[in-house]
Amino acid sequence: MTYLVLQTQLTDTGEWIANIFFYIIAAVAIVAALRMVTTNNVVHASLYLLVVLSAVAATYVILGAEFAAATQILVYLGAIMVLLLFGVMLTRAKIGAETDLDHDQKWIGALVAASLGAVMGYSLWEGFGDVRMPADQVPQRTEAVADEIFSTYIVPFEALSVLLLAALIGAVVVARRD
């Protein structure tokens, strides 16, 4: 399916189709994200997050980053979401609507987010107004990604492994019942 999308990009029609895909995905992502930060139900919020994460994975596919998309599904949907749901359950969140999830004065948050959005939007518009993605785009091969990780990025990769181990040890100590 990925391959299909990118193949069709080569023609105008193909680009149209990819665009349509993208806008649908983007709309879903934005709506789900908005619902996630406004809903009164913790469980619903985590389900909305699921939708956003999937949509982001789909965006990676459109951008030809297949491996990142796969990782996104595996790590986020498979691991992080499960972790978050565990968190929801262990902290005995109500199944159903709650009233005490938000701060008062949400307008401050909204104001900050909106002005941040305005600054970002302006910068991006000024910077990349009508820059197009390259037309002859091909998917980035997983194998090339692997080569890159194990040559240029070997140091951060090894550091990351230490980081995960440390996080594991620490999280066990912190979270366990004495």
């Binding site: 990009q9 806008y23 983007a26 934005i30 930060v37 913790v42 969140a93 999830l101 941040l116 993605m133």
Partner: peptide, 29 residues
């Protein structure tokens, strides 16, 4: 396709996330 359509999507999600961290009281949220 424009580069900006992706960047704008990212910016919007970023700001929605910021809104979320600024308004939510529940730690998991």
């Amino acid at each position: 396709m424009f580069l900006n359509q992706f960047l704008f999507l990212a910016a919007i999600l970023f700001c929605i996330g910021v809104y979320g961290v600024l308004t939510r009281k529940n730690g998991v949220l």
